[in-house]
């Protein structure tokens, strides 16, 4: 993944990233954070709708769909995709903020 990715909307399908900041209108920010997209949470861009919008994200084991325009308001830090075996407890603790994505 290109390292200059700064926003959720710039991810490509399959990319993972950690949320840094949710911007935009207050109601949007709050809704997204309440659904678990708090700073430090890992997200994966799972798919893009056939018409190019909206996006499908994998967050905390759930699929959430948001529009590209809204995703542009979410600042992210590109992450390294980990494979399942690496996600054993020891590895997991080394991550900046323990992502409970996929739990259980």
């Amino acid at each position: 993944m290109p390292t200059d990715v700064r926003h959720l909307s710039e991810l490509e399908v399959g990319d993972v990233a950690d949320i840094e900041h949710v911007g935009g209108e207050r109601s949007f920010r709050r809704r997204l954070m309440e659904l678990g997209l708090v700073p430090g949470t890992r997200v994966e861009l799972k798919a893009v709708a056939p018409l190019g919008d909206p996006l499908e994200l994998l967050v905390r084991g759930a699929s959430l769909s948001i529009r590209r325009g809204d995703a542009a308001l979410v600042r992210v830090r590109p992450g390294v995709k980990l494979t399942a075996p690496e996600l054993e407890p020891a590895t997991r603790r080394r991550l900046p903020i323990a992502p409970v994505r996929g739990a259980p």
């Binding site: 935009g24 209108e25 809704r31 997204l32 909206p54 699929s63 959430l64 769909s65 529009r67 809204d70």
Partner: peptide, 8 residues
């Protein structure tokens, strides 16, 4: 205006 946050 409520942004679309759709659960699949």
């Amino acid at each position: 205006r409520v942004p679309l946050v759709l659960e699949l």
